[in-house]
Design a protein around this nucleic acid. Structure first.
Lengths: 157, 157
DNA sequence: GTGTGAATAGGATTCGTTCTCATTACTATA
DNA sequence: TATAGTAATGAGAACGAATCCTATTCACAC
C-alpha cells in the first residue's frame, strides 16, 4: 500500500521518529538534546531536502552554529544526509532508514529539490551496473545517487 | 569498438576539439581567446573532472579570476559542465558533445571524481523512469545524473 | 549540592567564489 | 593605417557559506 499522500513525509509518527533518532545518537554516545529534537522536527516537517537557511530562518529559531554542528552529529550518526547538488548551499534531509530510499528532482533555476521514488527493479539494475563499474576501477561502493536536473513547474518557460 | 585506453580522454584530436569549441563560442558571440584555449587544453588533459585549483595551480599558470569567468562563459556555451558533487569545491569537465555521455565515481573521503560509462540499455531505462516521475511532478527534465559514492582505492580501509 | 564533560551560541575566521575596475587586446568602420 | 567601440584580462576587494573558537550553560553521576 502506497503512502504518497503527504509529500513522502510523515511515514513515521513523530514519536517513533524521535525514538529511532535517540537510539542512533545513543549508539554513537551522543545525547538527544532539545535543540537536536527541534532540528529533527524541522527536517521531518519540511518534506523535502532543505538548506541550513531554510531551517534557521523558519519558525524554529535555531542558531546557525549549533545547527551546523548538530547536522554534523546527526550525519555521523546516520540520521541525516547531506546533499551537495543543487547549487551553492548544501541541502539536508533525513537519512535512508528514517525516510524510504528515493531520488531527487533538482531545479537548476531556483535550486529547490523534491523527492521521487523509482521502482525496485530499476534500483537493482542500477546498483548492479554501478557495482560492476566500481569493481573495475577498484572503487568501494557506498551508495548510488540518481537525480534528475531540470526546471520545476515554477521556473518553466 | 570501445575506446577506454586513454582514461576516456583524447576522444578528439586537440585540433578538432578547438574547432568545436570555437564554433560553440562563436554561436554565443564569444571569442576563443588564447586564455580560453589554454583552459580547454587543461580540461582535456586532465582526463577527469577537476577543481579550479587543479587548473590554476598546475603548469597552466592561468589566473584565478579569469579562469572562473571563462569557465562560466564556456558553461554558458555548452562546452563545460560544472559538477557540484564531491564536497566543497566545484569540479569542471568538458560537456557532453565533446566528451561521451558518462557518469562519476565520487570518493567521499578525498573528493576525487572519476568517469565511468554504462551501457546504453540502462541509460534509456533510467531516462524513461525519470521522465515519467518528472511528468508527475510537473518538472521539465534537462539531464539525469547517476553517480556512485564510495571510496577510491587510495582511501579504502 | 558538587563536579565533570558534553552541548550551546555568539562572534571571529577561513576560504571558495564572485565582483569591481583599470588596463589591454581585439574588431569593425572610416 | 588610424580610430573608436567593445570584449577580455587580471589583480585585488568583497561576499557569503561553512567552520572554528571560547566562554557559558546544561545534564547526568557521585
Amino acid at each position: 500500500m502506497e503512502n504518497a499522500t503527504d509529500s513522502g513525509q510523515a511515514e513515521l509518527a513523530l514519536r517513533d521518529l524521535h525514538d529511532m533518532v535517540g537510539v542512533r545518537l545513543a549508539r554513537h554516545d551522543y545525547r538527544y538534546t532539545a535543540g537536536r529534537q527541534r532540528l529533527i522536527e524541522a527536517l521531518a516537517g519540511a518534506g523535502r531536502p532543505v538548506t541550513l537557511t531554510d531551517i534557521t530562518s523558519s519558525a524554529s529559531g535555531l542558531p546557525i552554529s549549533s545547527t551546523y554542528r548538530n547536522l554534523e552529529v546527526l550525519e555521523r550518526s546516520g540520521v541525516v544526509n547531506r546533499i551537495s547538488i543543487g547549487g551553492d548551499r548544501a541541502h539536508f534531509e533525513l537519512a535512508e532508514p528514517l525516510l524510504s530510499h528515493h531520488h531527487h528532482l533538482v531545479c537548476v533555476a531556483c535550486g529547490i529539490i523534491e523527492d521521487i521514488r523509482l521502482d525496485d527493479e530499476l534500483e537493482e539494475l542500477v546498483d548492479r551496473s554501478l557495482s560492476e563499474a566500481a569493481r573495475q576501477a577498484a572503487f568501494t561502493p557506498l551508495r548510488h545517487l540518481l537525480d534528475l536536473h531540470g526546471h520545476c513547474y515554477r521556473c518553466t518557460g
